[in-house]
C-alpha cells in the first residue's frame, strides 16, 4: 500500500500521461473513498472486532478470568451440542421455519409487486404501496402484542370472529404448538412483504417499455407479457434476493419468536437464536451459547456459498 501511495516521482510523471496509477485513482476519487470509511468502520467495529470473542466457544469462559485466564476445552461445547438432546429439536424447528419462509415469505413480495405493476390507476397503486409498507416500521414487540390481543382465547377479537364463522371448540391460537408456525409465518408476511416489494418494484420500473410494445405487436396477452417479458427482466433481482436470503436462512427473527414462546409451544418454538439467548444471557453459559451461535454462523456461510454456486450452475449470475 505504502509503495502504491508513493511511487518514484519520475515514473509517476511518465505514467501520468497514459493511464492513472492506483495511487492516482485513489487520490482522484478520494472523496468517494472517504465516504466508504464509515461503512468500513461499522463492519470493523461491530462485525469483525467482536469476532475476537468467538474464541470463548472453545473455552470454559469465566468473565472474571477473561479470555486469557479461562481454560481451553477444545470442541467440548460442540460435542455437548451435537450429542445433547436439544440439537435435533433446534435443527428441526429452524429448518421447518426456514422452509416455510422459502415457500411462503419469499415469493410473496414478488407476487405483490407483479400485481401492483399491473395496476393502471396510479393513485390506487401508490396508496396500496404506502399502506403495505407501514407494518415494516412497527417493532416485533408491537406485532406480538397485537397478535396476543387479536388472538387471545379470552378476549381476542379475531379469534372470536373465526370462532363464530367456523364454530366448534374455541382454539387458543397463541398457545397451541400446531398454530405456532402458521402464526409466525403470517406475522412475517404481514410485516415484511410490503417493504421487500420496493426492491422488486424498482426492478420492474427498469423494464424497457419497447419490449412490451413488441410483445403486444406479436399478439401477446397480459399473461404472456408477464411470463415472457416481466419475469425474465426481474430474474436477476430474484436470484440475488434468493442468495441473500439463503445466508439468513437459519436466522429466525429472534424477538418475534422469543415473544411468541410459552410453556406450551416451546417444543415447537425453540430455534437456535432463542436457545442461544436463553442459554447465554439468561443462564449465563456464555461458552456454550457462543458455540451454538458459531455453529449456526458457519452453517449460514456454507448455505450462501452453496446457493451462489447453484445459481451459477443454473446459468444465472451469482453474487460473487
Amino acid at each position: 500500500m505504502a509503495t502504491d501511495l508513493a511511487p518514484p516521482p519520475v515514473k509517476a510523471a511518465r505514467v501520468d500521461r497514459r493511464k492513472p496509477s492506483r495511487g492516482r485513482a485513489l487520490w482522484r476519487y478520494r472523496w468517494l473513498y472517504l465516504l466508504l470509511i464509515p461503512g468500513l468502520a461499522y463492519f470493523l467495529v461491530f462485525k469483525y472486532v467482536p469476532m475476537r470473542g468467538l474464541q470463548i466457544a472453545f473455552q470454559d469462559f469465566v468473565p472474571f478470568l477473561g479470555y486469557n485466564g479461562s481454560q481451553w476445552v477444545g470442541f467440548k461445547h460442540f460435542e455437548d451440542l451435537f450429542t445433547g438432546p436439544d440439537f435435533g429439536r433446534l435443527m428441526y424447528n429452524t429448518l421447518v421455519l426456514a422452509l416455510l419462509n422459502i415457500v411462503f415469505v419469499f415469493p410473496a413480495p414478488i407476487i405483490v409487486a407483479l400485481m401492483l405493476n399491473e395496476l393502471r390507476i396510479n393513485i390506487l397503486k401508490r396508496s396500496v404501496q404506502s399502506l403495505i409498507y407501514i407494518p415494516h416500521f412497527l417493532s416485533w414487540t408491537i406485532v406480538a402484542s397485537l397478535t396476543y390481543i387479536l388472538f387471545s382465547v379470552d378476549y381476542g377479537v379475531l379469534a372470536g370472529w373465526i370462532h363464530e364463522i367456523v364454530g366448534g371448540q374455541k382454539i387458543d391460537y397463541v398457545a397451541q404448538p400446531e398454530w405456532f408456525r402458521p402464526i409466525i409465518i403470517l406475522q412475517t408476511l404481514w410485516k415484511t412483504t410490503g417493504w421487500t416489494t420496493i426492491i422488486y418494484l424498482a426492478a420492474l420500473a427498469g423494464v424497457n417499455h419497447e419490449l412490451y410494445e413488441a410483445a403486444r405487436m406479436d399478439g401477446a396477452g397480459r399473461w404472456r407479457q408477464l411470463w415472457h417479458v416481466t419475469l425474465p427482466a426481474i430474474r436477476p433481482t430474484i436470484v440475488v434476493m434468493a442468495i441473500l436470503m439463503s445466508g439468513n436462512l437459519l436466522d429466525m427473527s429472534f424477538e418475534q419468536i422469543w415473544l411468541m414462546t410459552n410453556n406450551l409451544n416451546r417444543a415447537t418454538a425453540d430455534v437456535f437464536d432463542t436457545f442461544t439467548y436463553y442459554v447465554g444471557i439468561n443462564q449465563g453459559a456464555f461458552s456454550y451459547a457462543t458455540a451454538v451461535g458459531l455453529f449456526k454462523g458457519v452453517a449460514g456461510v456454507l448455505l450462501i456459498f452453496g446457493s451462489n454456486w447453484l445459481a451459477k450452475r443454473l446459468g444465472q449470475r451469482g453474487l460473487f
Binding site: F46, K47, V49, P50, M51, G53, L54, A57, D251, F254, F272, D273, T276, Y277, G280, I281, F286, A289, T290, V292, G293, L294, K296, G297, V298, G300, V301
Partner: peptide, 13 residues
Amino acid sequence: MAGALTLTTALLA
C-alpha cells in the same frame, strides 16, 4: 454466527 455475534456485541456494548 449472528447469534454468537449478537451475544458478544451485547457483552461488548
